[in-house]
Design a protein around this nucleic acid. Structure first.
Length: 264
DNA sequence: ATGCCTGCGGTTCGCAGA
């Protein structure tokens, strides 16, 4: 079972790159984030020809998540439970932001997520990020309490430890490294989830994102903010976890690259 | 300390990203 996640920073701009990547890598499931379009504008036919069915949670201009899979699956959530409350995690239209999609496939629950960045909107924007992460934790806790085999993958917008960002890449008070953000990532680990990349590479720099600005990729000044978390029985099946840095060297790349896990 | 790019919406700039 091969599962991947990729923040594509506009699926319309990146459709050809995603298509080529699917043809080469043939994952069973690819989770996508930052579609930056509504569901009706998602180029699903580009992927159907390769045998992938798409389910999309879209939004105009911002956010947006999707699942592409070549194995049978059923959608179980199109938003995090608990966030559809007025004034909490909602955009100006009163609709929940398009940041979570969840499926069942191969006797697993797989959540594809795009956490708020938390650097815009001042203190309120950061609090929104924390509330969103709290809702993710609450949902994960309920699934794990029922012994659900669970994968949570996507752009968490958190660098969990100091090895997960290049020295000086972020200010100490950046929302991606603030103690409150990191504490929530650790809470997911304490619930029993395993950070797949770190399970196989416990120490040293690992990056999944490089800023477009100031030659960050050439200088390898990156961040690890895209993660795959596995519940205990799935962690026991983990055989590989990889970051495809080559995607960042493409013409007009996303600023994020794919992260892939293989479960026996 | 700040801006550096990029994408989008809808205009020639602002917002968000991270």
């Amino acid at each position: 079972m091969k599962i991947a996640t990729w923040n594509v920073n506009s699926i319309r701009k990146r459709a050809a790159q995603v298509q080529a990547w699917l043809a080469r890598e043939s994952p069973d499931i690819l989770l996508l984030q930052e579609l930056k379009c509504e569901a009706r504008d998602f180029p699903e036919l580009d992927f159907a020809g390769l045998g992938y069915r798409a389910e999309i949670v879209g939004q105009k201009a911002y956010n947006g998540v999707a699942v592409l899979a070549r194995i049978p699956f059923t959608v179980t959530q199109r938003a995090l439970p608990g966030l559809a409350v007025a004034g909490d995690g909602v955009n100006g239209d009163g609709a929940v932001e398009a940041r979570y999609i969840e499926i069942t496939a191969a006797e697993m629950v797989i959540g594809g997520l795009y956490a708020p960045n938390g650097n815009s909107g001042g203190a309120a924007g950061f609090q929104k990020k924390l509330r969103w992460l709290d809702a993710l934790i609450t949902h994960a806790r309920a699934l794990l309490a029922a012994d659900t085999p669970l994968v949570l993958a996507g752009d968490f917008n958190i660098c969990p430890e100091d090895d997960d960002l290049a020295p000086g890449a972020l200010a100490a008070d950046d929302a991606l490294v603030r103690p409150e953000s990191r504490a929530r990532f650790r809470t997911l680990l304490w619930l029993g989830m395993t950070d797949a990349l770190r399970a196989l590479t416990p120490e040293g720099p690992l990056y999944t994102f490089w800023d477009y600005q100031a030659g960050a990729f050439a200088a390898d000044r990156g961040l690890r903010i895209d993660h795959v978390l596995l519940s205990p029985t799935l962690a026991e099946r983990l055989s590989a976890a990889t970051i495809d840095r080559t995607a960042r060297a493409a013409e007009q790349p996303s600023d994020h690259v794919p992260v892939t896990v293989i479960l026996r």
